[in-house]
């Protein structure tokens, strides 16, 4: 099991193709990886049934890390463990450690609301609330104490511009969010997450419920967001992972439990994987 990035590859990393450095970029470049999420021996059980076993993995600041692997190998569970959304499943038991910015998030003293503010999440199915477009963004802002009108308005415009939705909806912010198209809804959900100014974005197959064109738009958006945000994305679309990710983690099911097989630079995983399962999966001969 190779759970740390291959050093030789890391040193030869070409910054140009690592990620898009927009003017918004604040994180360190990927060639100088700095872990922001450190997962150590993470195991997950649902009512006694193991979903994920002993995963150890570092997620690097400012990079896009793609989680790939067949269905049921625990990728989504892994993702929802990072923002403790897994707490909503009463039968779930967790062991091991996840550190975000050095702090163990499963520490009893953790402020879960603050944690989830820092770690935004986008789901497979676009889930705008049955409210107006504006209220979809102001609701989480209000919850976190941002209520000054000019500030809220500025954030709304900012995040909608960030996701390229502003020109499409600026004249109908008070209409139903559910009247938007699927791709627009998903971009609104991303905007909603961005409004809280998170450090990390978790994305659970954000494009799989969208048509190819909308999917392309969202994919471009994700690439543009890298650098400014640390992104962990689950995807079944290997081509997509290859296009946008800096790092990739390959999960597989062994003895009915999901395990991390290989982690490393995206190019390394796709072009010269060390593990034969990885090779078989990315070449399409298994999975």
């Amino acid at each position: 099991m190779n759970a740390t990035p291959d050093n030789s590859l890391q040193n030869s990393c070409n910054c140009d193709d690592a990620y898009t450095l927009g003017p918004l970029q604040v994180g360190p470049p990927c060639c100088d990886p700095q872990p922001v999420i450190q997962v150590e021996n993470l195991s997950l059980q649902y009512g006694g049934k193991t979903a994920l076993e002993k995963v150890t993995l570092d997620i690097y600041r400012g990079c896009i890390t793609a989680l790939i692997g067949p269905s049921g190998c625990g990728k989504t569970s892994f993702l929802s463990a990072i923002n403790r959304l897994i707490d909503l499943i009463p039968t779930c038991q967790i062991s091991g450690h996840i550190r975000v910015d050095g702090e163990d998030i499963y520490d009893p003293g953790t402020n879960v609301q603050a944690l989830r503010r820092k770690i935004g999440m986008v789901f497979q199915k676009p889930t705008p609330f049955p409210l107006s477009i504006r209220r979809n963004i102001t609701l989480p802002l209000r919850e976190h104490g941002i209520t000054q009108r000019h500030k809220v308005e500025a954030i709304i415009e900012q995040v909608l511009r960030d996701v390229g939705l502003w020109d499409e909806v600026c004249d109908r912010l008070d209409t139903a969010a559910l009247s938007l198209s699927g791709g627009q809804q998903q971009r609104l959900c991303i905007a909603r997450a961005l409004a809280l100014n998170p450090e990390i974005l978790l994305m659970d197959e954000p494009c799989s419920a969208l048509d190819p064109i909308a999917s392309g738009v969202v994919e471009d958006l994700i690439s543009r967001l890298s650098g400014r945000y640390t992104i962990v994305i689950v995807t079944h679309n290997l081509a997509q992972a290859r296009r946008i990710a800096n790092y990739a983690a390959f999960f597989w099911i062994k003895e009915r439990a999901g395990q991390l097989v290989e982690f490393g630079h995206c190019r390394h995983i796709f072009e010269s994987p060390t593990h034969e399962l990885t090779a078989a999966y990315v070449n399409g001969s298994r999975g």
Binding site: L88, Q113, P140, H144
Partner: peptide, 9 residues
């Protein structure tokens, strides 16, 4: 889930 993920109480 969406609401919880946004840190809503």
């Amino acid at each position: 889930h969406g609401a919880a993920a946004l840190g809503l109480s």
